[in-house]
Design a protein around this nucleic acid. Structure first.
Length: 440
RNA sequence: UCGGGCGUAGCUCAAUCGGCAGAGCGGGUGGCUGUUAACCACUAGGUUACAGGUUCAAGUCCUGUCGCCCGAGCCA
């Protein structure tokens, strides 16, 4: 039986408008902008996949349709019918000559976001509408592609997706601030800061696992690199040490960056990103020890001493010495979390690694080899003043068939901010949650 | 929590030494058959964040409050 209407996924879109050259089609969308010139209306129509100019010429339509076009306001929803034609003046190469037009809804009030300049605070107050603008669409399409590449990498390399809980009983790492929430029967739960400990259980069960989900940090950090809610992917692998962990991080980063460059070149170009800088992200990455990093910083005139953690300035100076991400390994154990394994060759250091993105975007990966010895881990838990009881299940992982294992966490928004070349992470997530903002 | 900065029309910003509250964009009306941030003419639009104070006179100076931005610490 012939269908009277196309399937939902057979409708024409601006994204693939080239298929419809010479045909008369119907497009459903919104008015992005309009210019008029006497007997002509130039409608910039967006349908979610792109923006196309639809030309309403007074001689081609009824007087009613021409009046309807004149009455349209920014972000009116509409249905246009017309013939698709090649036009060299068009940014997308095609235009529609409109023969019929219906306004589905014309707003009573003006759309707040005009095509001119606005400040970030105003745009963030209207984030639900800002998402309609082409620049935000480019960023969020690249975000979706980055996430697709991340999943594709792990799925193709024998990792099992293992979701970590959002509610957790206590701090994964004692110090950082947690969001507390009421749980049942008057008890408290905390929003997760990391799925890592659960991934360690997963690695002992499945060998290679990863989790991918939101992470919550109640730190009072109001900088361009911080969100209170962000997304993190955390792989964990049994039977590997720090060197293989770095191999994994390097291979993974090259894969996802080149995958994004290959599939979202148009969007990166729209953001005026220097794509050549991303294409340089190839193996091998420099691997320098914390000790070597301190020497490099001192040679650069930075007043750092061995034993201190690096701040943002130090990270930027180090990262700027390389044209691709750089791995800094074996930090002083005191700077790092309790579960990091001590370096047997230098007991002051931990078998950990941070990956710094180029161009001053800072740390995008933190990871390392985990402590796998029961007695050593118990001692570290006590030294850090953590609850032995709360970490009982975690200690169990060392009691039953413990093996060397390692992993890392990658922050999606910082990585995306770097890939897109954005000055602030807040545009890398649809609805950012910041210290000073939980709306819209 | 600490340091620095900001708050004027719907938006982005001016307003000199304390001396008439301004522009562009957006909106409205009219004009134009090829506009790309269209253009031209006209037009409406103000509790200068809030509360006090100094002064003949405060957007401007002082005190306090609120909000926001940038950074530090902390972190991805």
């Amino acid at each position: 039986m012939p269908r009277s209407r196309p399937m939902w996924n057979e409708r024409p879109t601006i994204e693939n408008i080239a298929r419809y050259e010479g045909q008369e089609i119907v497009l459903k969308g919104w008015l992005y902008n309009m210019r008029s010139s006497g007997k002509l209306h130039f409608l910039q129509v967006r349908d979610g996949t792109g923006v196309m100019q639809c030309v309403v010429f007074k001689g081609n339509v009824t007087p009613e349709v021409f009046e309807t076009a004149a009455a349209l306001k920014q972000e009116s929803s509409l249905v246009v019918r017309g013939k698709i034609r090649v036009d060299a003046r068009s940014p997308i190469g095609f235009e529609m000559d409109v023969v019929d037009l219906k306004a589905t809804h014309i707003p009573d009030v003006d759309y707040p976001i005009s095509p001119k300049e606005h400040g970030t605070a105003f745009l963030m107050d209207h984030r639900h509408l800002w998402l309609r603008s082409s620049r935000q669409q480019a960023i969020l399409r690249i975000r979706a592609e980055l996430i697709r590449q991340i999943r594709a990498y792990f799925d193709a390399n024998g990792f099992l997706l293992l979701d970590a809980p959002i509610f957790t009983p206590s701090a994964c790492e004692g110090t950082t601030t947690l969001f507390e929430t009421d749980y049942v029967d008057g008890s408290k739960a905390y929003l997760t800061q990391s799925g890592q400990l659960y991934m360690e259980a997963g690695a002992a069960a499945f060998g290679r696992v990863y989790c991918f989900g939101p992470t919550f940090r109640a730190e009072k950090s109001k900088t361009r690199r911080h969100l209170t809610e962000f997304w993190m992917v955390e792989p964990e692998v049994a039977h590997i040490g720090l060197d293989e962990d770095m191999d994994l991080a390097e291979d993974f980063l090259v894969s996802i960056v080149q995958g994004v460059v290959a599939n979202r070149r148009k969007e990166l170009a729209a953001l005026e990103r220097d794509i050549a800088a991303l294409e340089r992200v190839q193996k091998p990455f420099a691997r320098i020890s914390y000790t070597e990093a301190v020497e490099r910083l001192q040679q650069a005139g930075m007043p750092v001493r061995w034993g201190e953690d690096f701040g943002g300035d130090e990270e930027t100076v180090l990262a700027n010495q390389f044209d691709r991400p750089v791995m800094i390994h074996r930090y002083p154990a005191e700077c790092k979390a309790f579960y990091m394994k001590t370096d047997p060759d230098d007991l002051k250091c931990a078998l950990c690694v941070d990956v710094l993105a180029p161009e001053g975007y800072g740390e995008i990966i933190g990871g390392g080899q985990r402590e796998d010895d029961y007695d050593t881990l118990l001692k570290k838990i006590r030294t850090h003043g953590l609850s032995e009881e709360a970490f009982g299940w975690y200690l169990d992982l060392r009691r039953y068939g413990t093996v060397p294992h390692a992993g890392f966490g990658l922050g999606v928004e910082r990585t995306l901010g770097w890939i897109c070349g954005l000055p602030h992470v807040r545009e890398t997530i649809p609805f950012p949650r910041l210290m000073q903002r939980v709306t819209p």
